[in-house]
Design a protein around this nucleic acid. Structure first.
Lengths: 350, 350
DNA sequence: CTGTTAGCGCCTTCAA
DNA sequence: TTGAAGGCGCTAACAG
């Protein structure tokens, strides 16, 4: 059923070498032989064994991708971009979803190394530094995305500080003086940078930083929901909330709904990360939209460069973030339905 | 940097055979030698080369996954389940997103076969039959998910007919007499089954089937949006719409919003496929929620069974679908925010 | 232009 | 309990 070069060479009555060369186009072969070989290949349905090829060449043209949770739309979008770019450049993606669990993160890297991926892309956990150190010991090229655990490796992330700062400044300009921040796990660079951006914006606006308005450690909608309730139970509750990512925004939205608070009239809400269908939430969310597509593409490009030349100095890329003003910040957005739904491909036929 | 069994055997001064056996625990080794070997392994950081191993064993413990568009939340959820189950059972997933393009579908399968995956999971396009036939010629185990292109292969899908029928019957019972259907590409079994279920429900209710109320071929939100506008432009527009999947629901929702039509007061809307955040859409969508998790798990299990025993007769699994009644069908849902958000994992800490 | 041959790293029979 | 040796399928010197 599964055939080999040798089968082809026997059937075409040529040497194994010649077959290899016509398959790979790696040296001139006379028309006559080439025709015979091609006929034989078709006849027995030969498909090259890239395992053997990889073993010989010590290059698998495979990239490992280790990520938190592909169900988070933000990561989904990145995975999509990574896969597409990798495929375009002739690489296949090995996928591992490690659910923010450092132990599973290490497992994933081990599996990838055993499979001799040519390089790997990782959104590191708070324990990522150790995982990356292990990788370094094996000389495997890697690029970090979304978060930074080890500046000794390449990375491509976004300007978390600046974007959060703009989000918060916008809220300040609309007159809010008690602005709460729903932050993530402080072991992650993203969380630290976003919280720092928040603080900075407050200071810029001459507003005090009230520790009671900063909640960190939320990593799922449910914890954000609970945290939001706690925030609103305070004596002097916030009039605006900044969600550190999309999952936290969902949780906040749920809590707000449960209290029948109106957004933005009663409480304003802005969030990091956009959803492709953010225009269908009510209220429509004002967000800091990350360039997921570009991020994925850059990450693959960086990685392939490094695979080609492992001696390169670490390269650090920070991409800009677009603030999408919709309703939840208190701005009356233009048309009731924004015509731009950037992440959803347009149809080709009805 | 990357070391081999031979390196270990030299350092530990034992035979290569012995090292292999301690690594794989495949035959008894004396305490003394084992200790030496293990020390050597640690010392040089040996990581097995699974490429070589796979070549020798002709089994890669790899599964190929070929799917339309991981950005569709429905597929995202399935990919998540597949990856998790595969990992639990010691397999790694190779990912290929082929964007509903038959040419890219074939490419993906070819790449998978070249990489000698042990089996593959595919959500076939309308051209899937040809692709699967090619696979059969190579004797590669495969299971279809979501859609059926070749009953000669295993599959696990959901009861599209019955679920759509229940959705439409519900609408009929609420008094709707002009119910439109937004169907997908009729080359896909899902689309055919769902449209058939719709027709069946109308007949059961003694209602005429108006061809003008059935639109097929939408595959993206944008085409569904346009189709919805066309539907509403008719002389006798529908009072209810059934979206054949989640993307079509997004499009319909946008069109409805653009016309300032209220759901469900002016037009009712129900949809196949649930979203994890469906509770945050306004109106909250009534949906036929597929058991994505179970589907993924069954698919992997079926595939591994078949890999073990390729002689098995084709196995066909059809899973039930849960109708989630929310507001968009005209039912006043209970609490304003449903406490069940099944696809979003609960937090472990705040 | 074509063929012979030596591995890539590993598993496993066979022999000791 | 241990080791030597052949071969999985392929590529690329090297030789004709």
């Amino acid at each position: 059923m599964i055939t080999t070069l040798k089968d082809v060479s026997r059937l075409a009555d040529v040497s194994l070498t010649t077959v290899s060369h016509v398959v790979n186009g790696t040296r001139p072969v006379s028309e006559k032989l080439r025709a015979r070989v091609e006929a034989a290949i078709r006849q027995i349905g030969y498909t090259p064994n890239s395992l053997a090829r990889s073993l010989k060449l010590s290059s698998s043209r495979t990239l490992g991708l280790a990520i938190q949770d592909i169900r988070n739309p933000h990561f989904t979008e990145i995975v999509y971009a990574l896969e597409e770019r990798a495929r375009e450049r002739g690489f296949t993606l090995l996928l591992s979803d490690f659910g923010d669990d450092p132990a599973r993160e290490s497992d994933a890297l081990r599996v990838f190394v055993e499979r001799r991926v040519d390089g790997l892309i990782i959104a590191p956990t708070s324990n990522g530094a150790a995982a990356l150190a292990w990788l370094r010991g094996r000389g495997v090229p890697a690029v970090q995305i979304d978060r930074i655990a080890d500046p000794g490796f390449d990375y491509v992330v976004v300007s978390n500080h600046a974007a959060t700062r703009r989000l918060v400044t916008h809220l300040c300009q609309k007159g809010h003086r008690r602005i709460a921040m729903l932050g993530g796990l402080m072991g992650l660079s993203t969380s630290r940078e976003r919280v720092a951006g928040y603080r900075r914006a407050l200071r810029d606006a001459g507003l005090p930083v009230d520790p009671g308005l900063i909640v960190v450690g939320c990593s799922q909608p449910e914890s954000a929901r609970i945290a939001t309730h706690a925030l609103l139970d305070q004596a002097a509750p916030p009039t605006a909330i900044v969600a550190g990512n999309n999952l936290k925004a969902l949780g906040a939205l749920r809590a707000l709904g449960e209290r029948n608070l109106r957004v933005p009239e009663d409480v304003a809400l802005v969030s990091f990360d956009d959803f492709p269908w953010a225009d269908l939430f009510r209220p429509r969310l004002t967000t800091a939209a990350q360039p997921c597509r570009a991020l994925g593409e850059r990450a693959v490009d960086l990685l392939l460069d490094r695979i080609r030349d492992p001696g390169l100095a670490p390269r650090h890329v920070r991409l800009g973030v677009e603030i999408r003003h919709r309703e939840s910040c208190g701005c009356a957005a233009g048309a009731p339905f924004s015509p731009t739904t950037p992440h959803v491909p347009t149809s080709k036929s009805v």
